[in-house]
């Protein structure tokens, strides 16, 4: 036994040393390692490029051609952000659908979860990596900010909260896609499931639907349902109001979905 310990190489020594450090730095390192791998995975395949290009093209088309950005003659980005709940509805599940289903299909989940890391570190690392891709695509719409600033005098505070809202919305959708991708090894099933859940979160607070509901349901019921909608909380941020409740709503959707992801993964492993 003692011989075996002596025979352990410098490598094994490093592993023992690493365990002596505080747990949170270890956790952070693991999350970063996994996130780094995930981001490089997105760029190794065409997914990241396709997503970014399509997002930019579609948001440009919707803003300028459909919403009539120039015809409004207003120095704001409302006509840009208004489309995001619908644009993300298709694009975000497409980015998130492979997150766990691919791990299940390839069998790498067995490899990942037998590493000396907690499932939470893997879930958070993978989520943050995909969110970073979405944030990158969103950041690449910066010419629009330059344009409105060149053409007029917009309230850049409102533009900032608009971007914040859009980023949180993308994160909320993405966490739902993470959850549904943990349910199946089939990416198409994962895509459709998350699309349906996200669609519900839009429709619950979308004016045409809430107007319809008010005709036969009591107002408190309609309001309760609408409170679950991303649209209700997204709109607040579009007019420049950072209401902590709106931010909390998106963060709790993300936390809840990631927690559910961990429950699904555990249930899957337990058989």
């Amino acid at each position: 036994m003692s011989e075996a310990i002596l025979e352990r190489s410098a490598n094994a020594q490093t592993v023992t040393d690493a365990s002596a450090k505080p747990a949170w730095t270890d956790a952070l390192r693991h999350i970063l390692t996994i996130a780094k791998r995930e981001v490089s995975g997105y760029f190794a395949s065409p997914i990241a490029y396709v997503f970014i290009v399509i997002f930019l093209l579609l948001s440009g088309f919707l803003t300028f051609m459909v919403a009539g950005f120039f015809e409004h003659g207003q120095a704001n980005l409302l006509s840009f952000f208004a489309w995001h709940p619908w644009l993300y509805l298709f694009l975000v599940p497409a980015v998130g659908m492979r997150m766990w289903s691919e791990e299940r299909r390839l069998g790498t989940m067995e490899l990942l979860l037998t590493m000396p890391i907690t499932p939470w570190q893997a879930i958070v690392g993978k989520f943050l990596a995909s969110w970073l891709i979405l944030a990158l695509a969103l950041a690449l719409t910066f010419p629009l900010v330059i344009t409105v600033n060149y053409l007029g005098h917009p309230d850049n505070g409102v533009i900032f909260t608009g971007y914040l809202g859009s980023l949180l919305l993308a994160g909320a959708y993405l966490s739902i896609a993470a959850m549904t991708s943990a349910m199946t090894r089939n990416q198409v099933v994962s895509f459709i499931l998350s699309l349906v859940v996200c669609l519900f979160l839009i429709l619950a607070g979308w004016p045409p639907v809430t107007d319809l509901l008010t005709q036969w349901a009591s107002p408190w019921f309609v309001q309760t349902i609408a409170a679950f909608s991303v649209v209700t909380h997204f709109d607040g941020l579009q007019v420049g109001v950072i209401d902590s409740r709106d931010v909390l709503f998106f963060l709790s959707v993300i936390l809840f979905s990631l927690f559910t992801t961990s429950v699904i993964l555990r249930a899957h492993r337990a058989g």
């Binding site: 791998r37 995975g41 069998g107 790498t108 067995e110 490899l111 037998t114 000396p116």
Partner: peptide
Amino acid sequence: AKRLIGYLPENAPSYTDM
């Protein structure tokens, strides 16, 4: 415990995009 183990799962999975 996991730190002490090296594991080769059945069918030797790996991240094929790497």
